[in-house]
Every structure is written in structure tokens, then in C-alpha cells.
Amino acid sequence: MDDWFAAQVEQHGPDIHAYLSRRTAGGVADDLLGDVWVAAYGGRSGFDPDLGTPRAWLFGVARHVLHGYYRKHRLRSTMARVIGIDRPVDETAAIDSRLDAAALAPQLRTGLRALPAAERELLLLVAWENLSPTEAAQVLGIPAGTARSRLHRARQRMDERLSGSAQVEDETTRQEADR
């Protein structure tokens, strides 16, 4: 393993593991981290520093590994459900469990769930992984401008939903006070 790659492994290991942990359950991230390094090592000649940072590139590899994991395990998960063991069947389900467990404000959770999948993924890459919109664009393989406008739209939708919820809450409180 060359020094450059070893340095990336050391520097970004915790962040990539955190990304995988947020989107899986039951210690799966521990195994997937090795898969990410092996995949990245195999594809390291495809990394172009002119197109983005090593960090964003590694998150992109991790995203592919994660999608591959859920594709491969669709049958296993279905069978696990059949025999009565509940496991997340995809990334969205794993994130939903996390949001539930975090006891997030209900309107925030509902708002996130209502976002289109592409906007939600982008929003969480920025919020949870601390990626810049440009880095997140590289992870998702979309132009940076598209990522910025998509992120803006996602935050706007969340604002609308949250302020809508606040209005409903205010109205309910007022009605209760009137009684």
C-alpha cells in the first residue's frame, strides 16, 4: 500500500466509519469500512485531484459500497423479516430508525421524511458528514451548481414545513386557550 493511500486511510477512517454507521445497523459499518478501503484501493487510479478532494472521493466510494450492501442484502433482509427478525432493508430505513432514536422534534423528522430522496441525501451529507456542497456534489456525481440549488430547495422545503407546523401549533394553543 503506497504512502498516499495509507495516509488517506488514517486520516478519513473515522469519518467514513461514521458515515456508514449512520446508514446501517448492528455493527455492519465495522465490516463495510474494510470493503470501502479495498474498493478505493482498487479504484485509486480513477481519483483525479483536479476533480475534487480525496475526502469527497472516499465518501463517493463509501456510498457505492453502501448501495451494493443493501442491494445484496435485500433477500437476506426479507428472509430475516419472514423469520421474525427486523432489520433495516435500506439506507432510508436505517436513517429513519436513527431519527426516531434521536427523539428529534416530530416536525423536523416529518419534514426530513417528506423531502425527495435526492434532496434528503444531499442535506444529510452536508449536515452529518460536514461536507461542503461542492464536496457533496462530487460524492453524488452531480454538478456543484445542481447540488447548491438542490440544497437550497431542501432547506426551503424544511423551512416551509417547519413554519407550517409552527402555525398549526400556534393555532392549536390559541384554540385551547379560548376554551
Binding site: 486511510v9 477512517g13 465495522d30
Partner: peptide, 8 residues
């Protein structure tokens, strides 16, 4: 982290 590094 060490296990993942060993794999690669």
C-alpha cells in the same frame, strides 16, 4: 480501524 486497514 486496524482491522479495516489490515484488509486493504
Amino acid at each position: 480501524l486496524a482491522h479495516a486497514t489490515q484488509r486493504v
